Simulated scan of single mutants.
Amino acid sequence: MSLHQRRDVLEKLAALFGTASVAGLPFREENGEILTGVVDRIVDDLAVVLLEDDGELVDQTTLPVDELPGPAKEEGTVLELVMDGDDVDRVRYDKPETERRREEAEDRFDELAD
């Protein structure tokens, strides 16, 4: 099975069950612009997502919380988003980047506490 076929199967499972991981399998770029998003806050069942491109803050958008992948429904979660113009086409939870950023923030906090 090719990489694209595996990714398609995993993305379909993730959409159906909200639990399948597609981490490490890139979105296809021909489906739209790919941006990194960080859940900044959740207000009234809407997630405010800050959009980054190459590490720079470029915009923000809102998504209904129930459209976020299961583990991504909290502040500070990092997402990969496929954008179709100003609209979000697909969202994927980026667990490794979320964990890396949280560890980095904890390390900075520990340094300040010393």
Rank of each mutant, 00 (worst) to 15 (best):
M1K: 11
M1V: 12
S2T: 15
S2P: 11
H4A: 15
Q5W: 07
R6K: 14
R6S: 13
D8I: 05
D8Y: 06
D8N: 15
D8T: 14
E11M: 13
L16N: 11
F17I: 11
F17G: 15
G18W: 06
T19D: 09
A20F: 03
A20V: 06
S21L: 04
A23M: 07
G24M: 07
P26L: 04
R28P: 01
E29G: 09
E30M: 09
N31R: 15
G32R: 01
D40R: 15
D40G: 10
I42D: 03
V43G: 03
D44P: 01
D45F: 09
A47E: 03
A47N: 04
V49G: 00
L50M: 10
L50V: 11
E52K: 09
E52D: 09
D54M: 09
G55M: 09
G55Q: 08
V58S: 07
T62F: 05
L63H: 04
L63D: 01
L63E: 05
P64N: 11
P64H: 07
D66Y: 13
E67R: 14
P69G: 03
P69D: 03
G70W: 11
P71D: 06
A72V: 04
K73M: 13
E75G: 04
L79D: 00
L79M: 07
L79W: 01
L79I: 07
L79S: 00
L81N: 03
M83N: 04
M83F: 10
G85H: 03
G85L: 04
D86H: 08
V88T: 09
V88I: 09
R90C: 04
R90L: 09
V91R: 02
Y93L: 00
K95M: 09
E97H: 06
T98M: 04
T98L: 02
E99T: 07
R100L: 11
R100P: 00
R100H: 12
R101G: 01
R102D: 12
E104L: 04
A105I: 05
E106N: 08
R108S: 13
F109T: 12
D110T: 08
E111I: 06
E111S: 08
L112E: 13
A113S: 15
D114Q: 11
